[in-house]
């Protein structure tokens, strides 16, 4: 709803200005210049990935010779076959997908259920000021890795999947964004629902959440990308390397081991998993899910992020 309005507005704006543009030669040149610069910037953002795709489909000799640029040479799909035939890689991929789904669900529930009361007045919810003060203190401080691990160990989360999704479930900054977004939802809709006999939880679910799709979608993408890209907590909290999420698994592929302690077999295995086209293929596979999801959520960014963060 909110989103449509912005798009609408943008259209109006463009139309208005279209009418104004006189096509003097200078203006035309100016326009072309802007289109050109933006085109180059846009290309700069995609070329590295095209290069990587070209590498992943190329033979290893042209890669070593450094002649692969944007098009595969000695085209083959071995690197992808290698990755997809590889139970360890696919398992890590699956764990990452699971982590994103569960993590995003948890985060969003937590965000909404916390931001909603906070968006209300302190008369309606007297705990608000206390909570906000605690949040600010929490934002300003941090215990560091060791105490955090001890806490996780005491509550029994270490060595479980939950260690990946529970800490960080409530991002304080995101919570403020959602809270501010809720505040901009007109109270009349809420009053109408209350008249119909809904309690505040029902109001939140039936009125606020549907109206807040942009901010919720943006938050979903943020937390999802965060979970997808994180490698450290996988390493720290997962007991078995077979339960590592994808990025933690990929660390093994991109870091160099200490050669003097490796056996001959280990070295050969290392040489295989780190060959450049295998690396490229695994990176591409690891990046694809994000590339698939984000264009669908892109339309929400503008309303979701700005209305939440900056009040009018």
């Amino acid at each position: 709803m909110a989103n449509e309005t912005v798009v609408e507005k943008e259209k109006n704006l463009v139309m208005t200005r279209n009418r104004q543009i006189r096509s003097s030669p200078v203006e035309k040149l100016f326009t072309m210049l802007i289109y050109g610069i933006l085109g180059i910037l846009g290309a700069s953002c995609i070329i590295p990935f095209i290069h990587l795709i070209a590498l992943s489909f190329s033979g290893s000799d042209p890669i070593k010779a450094g002649i692969v640029s944007l098009w595969p040479i000695e085209f083959n799909t071995d690197a992808y076959k290698y990755a997809l035939d590889h139970p360890a890689f696919m398992r890590a991929f699956g764990i990452s997908v699971g982590r994103v789904i569960v993590g995003v669900t948890f985060s969003l529930s937590m965000l909404v259920i916390t931001a909603y009361p906070l968006s209300k007045s302190k008369e309606a919810c007297p705990l608000n000021p206390l909570f906000k003060v605690l949040m600010i203190i929490a934002m300003l401080t941090g215990g560091g890795l060791i105490p955090m691990y001890l806490v996780m160990s005491w509550i029994g989360l270490t060595n479980t999947f939950w260690a990946l999704v529970v800490p960080g479930m409530l991002s304080l900054w995101n919570c403020f964004m959602v809270m501010n977004f809720f505040r901009n939802v007109p109270s009349e809709l809420e009053e109408a629902a209350i008249v119909d006999g809904a309690n505040s939880f029902q109001v939140m679910v039936k009125v606020y959440v549907p109206l807040s799709v942009p901010v919720i979608a943006s938050m979903a993408l943020f937390t999802g990308v965060g979970h997808w890209n994180d490698w450290f907590s996988g390493m720290l909290y997962m007991a078995r390397s077979r339960d590592y999420p994808l990025q933690t698994y990929l660390r093994q592929v991109v870091t160099t081991p200490n050669f003097s302690t490796l056996t001959i077999e280990e070295m050969q295995k290392y040489a295989q998993i780190t060959s450049k086209n295998n690396q490229a293929a695994q990176i591409i596979i690891a990046t694809v899910p994000i590339m698939c999801v984000y264009p669908f959520l892109q339309k929400y960014f503008m309303t979701g992020l700005t209305l939440g963060g900056v009040k009018g």
Binding site: P117, L118, E123, S200
Partner: peptide, 14 residues
């Protein structure tokens, strides 16, 4: 505005 205890309860997980 009256205190809404349900709102308060929603802050407990937080």
């Amino acid at each position: 505005v009256r205190t809404d205890y349900m709102l308060c309860a929603m802050l407990i997980p937080g």
